[in-house]
Structure formats: C-alpha cells, structure tokens
Design a protein around this nucleic acid. Structure first.
Lengths: 275, 275
DNA sequence: CTCGATATACTCACTTGGAGTATAATAGGA
DNA sequence: TCCTATTATACTCCAAGTGAGTATATCGAG
C-alpha cells in the first residue's frame, strides 16, 4: 500500500502526543491511506547519514514497520493505491520460472565483480550465492541482500540515477525498507501463521496456497501444501463450498484463531517444488 | 557485559558526530567497558511512554543492539564486569534439569491467572504454553514472552518493587532488553553460525557444545551435535590436540571463515536430548 | 594395570519432506 | 448425452533428516 502514486510508503513523524511508536504509526497510516492496520511488526531503525539529508545540523532516524491488511478500496489523503511489490522487484518473482530480467542483472553484476581485480573472487562468489547462479540454489529470503548488492553495483536508480535500472524506484530509501519487509515476511511465513492476516474470513485451500506463493515468489507442491496445513490444525472447514473457482467446488475454510498467536508453526518449512 | 556492578547494560546517547548508529554504539561500549565489539545486530527500538520518564516535554527513544565479544579482562570507565545472564534469569537455565525456582513461579502465575475470572482460561493457557506446563514442551526461545508475562503478573522487581521477586533486577528496562537479546540469540544459533563469535581461535568440539548449551540453556546430545557440526563443514581441524580437558586428548578445531557469512546453517535445529 | 574420564565412531529406528499418482466433482462444448 | 478440461481431494513412495543408543580409543591417576 503506497502513497504518492506508488512512489512512497506511508510515513510520518513521531510526536509527543503519540502513546507509543505503534500507536503513532497507526494514526499516520490511517490518515494517509484510509486503512486501519491490523498486524504490525517493527522492522529496522535507520540513521545512516548518507541515506538521509546531508545536513550536519540534524539527523533523521527512521523506524520502519511491517504492517499487514486485507485488500480493500482506500480513500485516504495521500493518494493511496495498491501496487504489487514485484513492480519494484521484478527479479524476485519466480512463480513462472526464473524471470528473464535476472539474466541481464547477473551479467551486469558479473561485469561489476570483474571490474575490481583485488576483490574479484569475493565479489563473484557473493553474486553467485546471493542470486543463485552457477548451481547455487535460489534463496527467496535474500531480498535485502540482493537489493543492497545491486545498490552497490549501481544497478538501481536510487544509487545511480539515469543508468539503465531494474525495477521501479521509490522515494528516498523506501525501496530498501520494502525489501527489508519482504525479506522478513518471507522468512516469517515459514514458522508463524501470519498469512491469515491477509486472507478474508473464509477461503479455499488453493486461495491460501496462491497467497503464500505470491509472498514467497515461488510455486508450491499442492499435495504437500495441503498436508502441511492440516497437520498444523490452524484452519477448520466452514461447512460451505464455493463453485466460483471453476472445476469441482472447493470447500471453504476459516482460520481457527488460535488461543495463542505465539504458537509456532512448529518447525515447518514451505513445501517447495523444484519444477 | 555490564556496567554499574551488573545493574545496567552499556549505553549512551546518539550524537551528530556519529557516522551511524552502529558506529556510535561501538564508541560507547568501548569507552564504558574497554571492549571492542565484534558482531553487532540491531534488536529493537523502544519509545513507550510508561517505560521511560513520565515527562510530557521530551521522549526517549531507545535503540537496542545485541553484541558478541570474546571474554577478556576489561578495564573500562563504567565499572564493567562479566555476569552470567542466568543471574538475571535463573528460570531460563535448564542444563541441570528444570530449575527449582520454576515451581514457585508457576504457582504464583497460576494464582495470578485464577485471580481474574473473565480472562481466566486465556491466562491459564498462556501460562502453560509459555512456561511449558501441563505437558506442553519447554520452548527455550520464549525468553521475552516469559519475562513480559512475569512483568504483567508482578513477579519481577521492575514491575513491583519489594515484592518477592525472581532473578536479579536491572536499571530501567535493561532486563527487558537483555531478554530480547537472549531470545534473539537462542533463535539465531539454529540457523546462523554466530556461536563462533564467542569462541577463541581454536577450540575442542566439547567446548563448542558447552557454549551452545550455555546459550540455549539446554543440554545437547553429544554424538548428534558432532554429526550436525561436521555436516555443516563450518570448522576444520588445526592438526593439534589438547590434553587440558582431562581424559583422552581432544582435537582442536578452528572456524572456517566462510566466504559468505550469510551462508545459513541450512535448516538445522539443535540436537536436543530429552533426558 | 585397572579405573574413571573424556574423545571419537558407528548403528538403528522413526519422522519428515519432496515428489508422483489416482480419484472425485463441476462446467462447457461437441 | 457424453466427452473433456479444470479444479479439488486423497493416497503412496522413497530418501534424507533426526533422536537415541552403543561401541571403541586414549589419556591421567592411583
């Protein structure tokens, strides 16, 4: 959920009137986007000089949060609007196989690695590991590592305006914050039932799977996904079915609001499929 | 590593002269404890009104970090000294079985749960889950949850001065920050090779195991621990042995500074032993 | 030389997780 | 009416991972 036509994330100053950081944040997001925020989790606090204004008189400290809401129309004040995050990170979407843009990125990164003789080997291995090249597996959690590496190599507009850049840029370091959020969320869905913060009241198993796939940027193995889900006993049938999905009607499920949200998805990983 | 005779964590204000949050922190810790800090990781940013000064004129924002160093004598300015963290959290050390103090804590928590009729069931389940009662397994990562629950129930001196309290208290909310750090570290050792930040140049496998056990507050299964370690290929033999351990001399190992620190301990959990 | 203590190596059974296949129920078109 | 495409649901298989136990090796002390 963005403001300024997709150029920035909702944000605002922390003021004395705010009861807490979270409370202040909720107010700002509500004002700017018209959305009440449900799930909220602190991400990271930035205060690097080079990432903010160059003034020597004051210093911005940015405290970033990850929030989850259900999609809905949003008549807020700041020109809010929904944007899929792969618009900003097209190389992160592997649901339809390896995206083509990755080849170009890999080429440019490898040229960048070759460019400095002294750190060549280190850079090359870092590129290969981070982007899953040369037989290394693609690790969907390294979103921030990949962005930072591309920033270093001057492949994103925030670092090198004008140069042929990958993905849509954002205001200031908002894209970096977004990368942090995606990375955190991709890691978290593996051991905490946060997906349900994004789901409507009732849903089919495939809808749930498609949501997880959208987050992870990967396709999952259907039978194993189902096995995993009902092992956890986190959802229950509503008793109703829907035929809106085409084909055989699907059972509808709802989230069993677990007594303890802290309850972990005991050591479960995602059931990936390599195909 | 504490200052003020074990009553506080090293801390200091962030100033305009500091290049970054991390750089400022390093300076402060070095000054107060005489220690250079190696590994550093941001923990959490607090700005709750009730946890800081009650003034309406200004507001403290505390940005906490987790740092790891190797033990050594420390002639710093702030009366620095080493303290085992189980001095502050005696209920967290399960290396010699369930600590006795847990029975008392459990009793008092259960009385607290019973005290409020409307939320009784919820509180009881929360206590059982968080402290591993009534057949629920002990989850060593819930350090912060346990501390917060005890805070709520008035079992720690920070919340209720004078009342029979468990563990040694600290200045302001420093014990809460420490709990956050322990929780983070206990979670992290399972998928990142951070233990080696605490180890000397060369060490035996049992020394490594004892270190992990001290962090996790649990005993590990020796053969499985060794199997896990050499699967990861993170360490290599130095070629030397030591007989300082008593019994058969043990081989010495060193950490193979992996080309990429980001390299995960691919999905490894700790080899726990239930005995 | 025996015993206690520590170090190291191997085996076994059970669970988990990736992958594939089979069957059921609907809509739409030949 | 029947066939087919499409989606939903259920079951099996196998290899790798993991908890647990046992056996052997090498030192010091008495």
């Amino acid at each position: 959920m963005t403001v300024r036509r997709g150029e920035a994330l909702p944000s605002g100053p922390f003021e004395l009137g705010h009861r807490s950081l979270q409370a202040g944040l909720r107010e700002w997001v509500q004002d700017q986007t018209g959305h009440p925020v449900g799930y909220l989790e602190q991400l990271y606090t930035f205060a690097d000089r080079d990432r903010t204004h160059e003034s020597a008189r004051w210093r911005a400290i940015s405290i970033s949060y990850l929030g989850l809401v259900r999609e809905q129309a949003a008549p807020g004040a700041g020109n809010p609007g929904w944007h899929g995050w792969y618009e900003y990170f097209p190389w992160e979407d592997h649901r339809k196989g390896r995206p083509e843009i990755l080849s170009e990125i890999a080429d440019r990164l490898q040229r960048w690695a070759e460019a400095e003789p002294s750190r060549r080997e280190y850079r090359k291995r870092r590129v290969e590991f981070t982007f899953g090249l040369e037989g290394a597996p693609w690790n969907e959690e390294l979103v921030l590592h990949r962005y930072e590496l591309m920033y270093e190599a001057g492949l994103v507009a925030e670092a090198a305006p004008g140069s042929g850049s990958a993905g849509r840029a954002m205001f200031a370091d908002h894209r970096r914050i977004l990368a942090t959020g995606i990375a955190r969320l991709r890691a978290k869905i593996k051991y905490r039932p946060v997906v349900f913060e994004l789901m409507p009241e009732s849903f089919t198993l495939l809808q749930l799977q498609r949501t997880v796939e959208a987050l992870a940027g990967l396709t999952l193995h259907k039978p194993n996904f189902r096995r995993l889900i009902d092992q956890q006993e986190l959802i229950e049938e509503t008793g109703e079915v829907t035929s809106e999905t085409g084909g055989r009607p699907a059972k509808l499920f709802r989230y069993r609001h677990a007594v303890l949200e802290e309850r972990a998805l005991s050591g479960s990983k995602l059931p990936l499929s390599r195909s």
